[in-house]
């Protein structure tokens, strides 16, 4: 059951990005078949791990990109059923181009109820933007 420790590692990483007073609503991960994660086991582990840190109900979206291979002889690229599939040209020298993804893509947090005093100083949206999606992230998304 390595899903348990992976869910815990994921939560530990997410905690770095969730601003104070915010709750995690959703996390999106991209995990290729290389890591042999069982989605149902992962979801169960996620439910337990999120509940432990007070984020019960947070959703986990798992994107599962397929294996992608490239033939060294003829250059064909394809998504095989098995990673050790040979090319249709007969060549077995294939390069693995994808399927090893193991990435936390994004999270969604709620907008907290902030005491009036703080509200006047800065809105949460602005604060979130500055502290969490500033220079360290290259991939700015439009709804941020």
């Amino acid at each position: 059951m390595h899903e348990v420790s992976i869910a815990q590692s994921l939560i530990e990483l997410i905690r770095r990005y969730v601003p104070a007073h915010c709750r995690l609503l959703r996390a999106t991960v991209r995990i290729g078949p290389m890591h042999a994660l069982e989605p149902e086991a992962m979801r169960l582990a996620w439910t337990i791990a999120t509940t432990e840190v007070g984020w019960a109900g947070a959703k986990l979206d798992i994107e599962s990109p397929p294996w992608r291979l490239r033939c060294a002889a003829c250059g064909r690229c394809w998504a095989p059923g098995r990673v050790d599939e040979a090319c249709t040209c007969g060549c077995t020298n294939v390069e693995i181009m994808g399927g090893d993804e193991f990435q936390l893509d994004s999270i969604e947090v709620d907008t907290p109820v902030v005491p009036d005093r703080q509200k006047r100083v800065t809105s949460n949206r602005t604060r979130l933007h500055n502290t969490e999606t500033g220079a360290r992230h290259e991939h700015q998304s439009s709804n941020c």
Binding site: I6, S9, L10, E12, L13, Y17, C22, L25, R26, V29, I31, F102, Q103, L104, D105, S106, I107, E108, V109, D110, T111, N124, R125, L128, E132, T133, H137, E138, H139, Q140, S141, N143, C144
Partner: peptide, 16 residues
């Protein structure tokens, strides 16, 4: 209201 925060980091970054 919710806010999306893009991250794009290895899941096991802290271990790494």
């Amino acid at each position: 209201m919710s806010t999306k925060v893009p991250i794009v980091e290895n899941v096991l970054k802290i271990n790494d």
